[in-house]
Amino acid sequence: MLDALTITVSVAALALAAWCGLAALRDQPTKDWHFIGMAVVTVLALAQLVVGVVKLADGGEPHEGATTFVVYLIGALFTVPAAAFLSLVERSRWGSATVAAGAVVLAVLEVRLYDIWGG
């Protein structure tokens, strides 16, 4: 797959996790600018999904199977939006903590995607 994109998504997710984690430590809910950050990370995950599907269509074969790879790509795409929705439901510091946790999960999924592809 595209290593630079995987690293970019991982770094952006960890930056979002730190940002929202800091908001949680300050006892703040998610704000509009947090949602902009979540949108940026989600767009990067969407770009990775598109690149992954294109690589599969071009004949690329993940080491652990195409089905597992696609499921992880879809899971990576929906991790941050799911956390964003939960942070809207919980308008306290725990909403920010939920987004931080979701962003860390996305970073871990990126490492796993790298391993599945054969990195």
Score class of each variant (00 low, 15 high):
D32L: 11
V108G: 05
G21V: 15
A101D: 05
A100P: 03
V51C: 04
W94D: 10
L22Q: 13
A103G: 02
I36R: 15
R26D: 00
L5P: 08
F69A: 02
L73G: 03
L2I: 14
G37D: 02
L73M: 13
A57D: 15
S10N: 04
C20Y: 06
V43G: 05
L5A: 14
I36A: 15
T67F: 10
F35E: 12
A84R: 03
A83E: 12
L22C: 08
W19Y: 12
F85P: 00
A97S: 10
W117C: 03
K31D: 00
G59M: 03
L46H: 08
G119S: 10
H63F: 06
G60I: 00
G95V: 14
Y72I: 05
W94M: 14
W94P: 12
A24F: 04
L109S: 03
H34Y: 05
V9F: 01
V40L: 07
G102T: 11
A17T: 11
A82C: 09
V41R: 02
L73K: 02
V99H: 02
V89H: 07
V111N: 03
D3V: 06
G118W: 01
W33D: 10
V50I: 13
L86F: 13
P62D: 13
Y72F: 12
D115I: 06
V99I: 12
A39G: 09
A23N: 06
L46A: 14
T6P: 02
V53W: 10
A45C: 06
W94E: 08
R26T: 09
T79A: 05
F69H: 05
L109W: 01
S10K: 11
A23D: 06
L14I: 14
G52K: 00
A23Y: 05
R91I: 09
W33I: 14
V41I: 09
S10F: 01
W19A: 10
